[in-house]
Amino acid sequence: MAFFFKMFNLNKFKNFNFSSGLALLMISLFLLFDIRSTEFSDVTTGEGVVGPKTAPTFLNIGIICLSILLIISSFPNKNSNEKLENIDLILILKKVLLILITFLYLFLTNFIGYLTSTLLIIPLILYIFENKNLKKNLVISISGALIYYIFFIKILGLHNPDPYYEIFNIVSF
């Protein structure tokens, strides 16, 4: 991992001015190109002075200018002796896993309904948060999922996302 950081000399990105400035520059250039290349009618604004393109154009130009400033401001730090501290790869992976599980939850809710997916997802999330007692996690998951289901779907009357597969309608009652 240290080799990876050395290879890309990530120390210079410590204050994130360069990396965030570059990302913003690319995004706003794309958005500027997109809005300028889209055809809009300017009929209601009179003489085409100001139309749907105006505000996005100004905002994108503002972001482009400021992101260039951010990139420039990062250069004096290039030779800084500051080192990236405490990069915990496992922690980063756990965070990525948590994001993926949340997307999986979304995907599963669409396919197997809210109750079933919540039953399956809670133990996974509990485990990522280092609750490693499986029995306890199982009890919490079942009771938690039922409480959520009864409160939100039955009491508050939220529409239960229809499961893609009919069989899960049985368990999603």
Binding site: T102, Y105, L106, T109, Y114, T118, I121, I122, I125, L126, I128, F129, E130, N131, I140, G144, Y148, F152, L156, L158, H159, P161
Partner: peptide, 20 residues
Amino acid sequence: NMIYPFVLITGFIAAYSARQ
């Protein structure tokens, strides 16, 4: 570490419930 998983689950259903 027991509170945050349920904050996440609550956030999920809260985001859904706005426009279902």
